[in-house]
Every structure is written in C-alpha cells, then in structure tokens.
C-alpha cells in the first residue's frame, strides 16, 4: 500500500493529539462539554484514522480485535456493576453515595466510573463495527 508521504507523516503527528483530546473530553466532562460517549467515539476515530492511513494490520496491532470486542461487554459491565455496588451496600441501584463517606464525593466517583464504562463500550463498539465492515469488504 503506497500512500502520500504527507498523509502518513501528518497522520503520525496528529494521532497522539487525537488520543489526548479524547482523554481531555473524558476527564474534563465533569467541567465542560463532553463525557464518555464523545470520548469513546473520538478514541475509535483515532483507530479508524490509523487503519485508513496505515492499513488494517497497523491498527490491529494497536487495538487487536479480541481486545476491542472484549471492551464492548466490559464497559456495560462496569456501568451495571457500579449500580450493583450501591445495591450491595444497602442503598438503591445506581446510588453513588455509597462510594465515599461524603455523599457528594461518592457521586463524583460514581459518575467517573460510569463515564469510564460508557467510554469503553462506545470505543469498543465503534472500532469493532469498523473492523467488521472493513474485513467484510476484503
């Protein structure tokens, strides 16, 4: 696969910043716009850009299909598990106040965990969808 040098170098330069932006969107979601869903899509976008410019093999070295496909249920389990913790500790399902002695801090932590779950599921699903379509096309 021979592609433009400019395209390759440009992609290489921009990739870490895309990932950094995704992490910013994820962890700054408490303060500004953003959150797990958007960050997950941006992360998947990074892998897709890598696959488009450097080929599917390079992308699957970074994000192997087995990992991506495991991320889909993992994120949903993290979300649901966060709710179960509240249940086990004697409060309602998805009541985050059990995570800390200070209820507000517990809620903050709960939101963080839940958003992490959303990020993992969304990033996994979007990348797995892309892989599925591309591999089908071969």
């Amino acid at each position: 696969m021979s592609l433009d040098l400019i395209l390759r170098v440009g992609t290489k330069l921009i990739l870490p910043f895309i990932l950094l932006f995704a992490l910013y969107v994820q962890f700054h979601g408490d303060f500004g716009p953003g959150g797990g869903f958007q960050a997950g899509v941006i992360t998947a976008g990074m892998v897709i850009l890598l696959a488009i410019t450097f080929g599917l093999k390079a992308a699957q070295r970074v994000a192997p299909r087995s990992l991506v496909e495991r991320m889909i249920p993992l994120g949903a389990l993290i979300f649901a598990g966060t709710g179960v913790v509240g249940l086990v500790m004697g409060k309602n399902y998805l009541d985050y106040s059990v995570f800390s002695r200070d209820p507000a801090h517990g809620h903050e932590l709960g939101i963080f965990l839940v958003e992490a779950g959303v990020l993992i599921t969304v990033a996994g699903t979007m990348t797995a969808l892309f892989y599925a379509f591309v591999e089908r096309g071969r």
């Binding site: 209820p103 507000a104 839940v114 959303v118």
Partner: peptide
C-alpha cells in the same frame, strides 16, 4: 452540592438519569 460536578449536563446524564444512560450503553452494546 450533591455531586461535586460543575457540569450539570454530565451530572444529569450519569447520575440523576443514570438508568437512562445505562439503557443507552446497553443499546450500544
């Protein structure tokens, strides 16, 4: 006061309406 999170949208999505977001995540899954 309740969540320590300044972005109300995030708080509503992930906390007050946690069930809805869990449903959305399940839909994506």
């Amino acid at each position: 006061k309740e969540t320590n999170v300044p972005n109300v949208v995030t708080a509503v999505l992930a906390d007050y309406r946690g069930y809805d977001t869990l449903g959305e995540t399940t839909v994506i899954f």
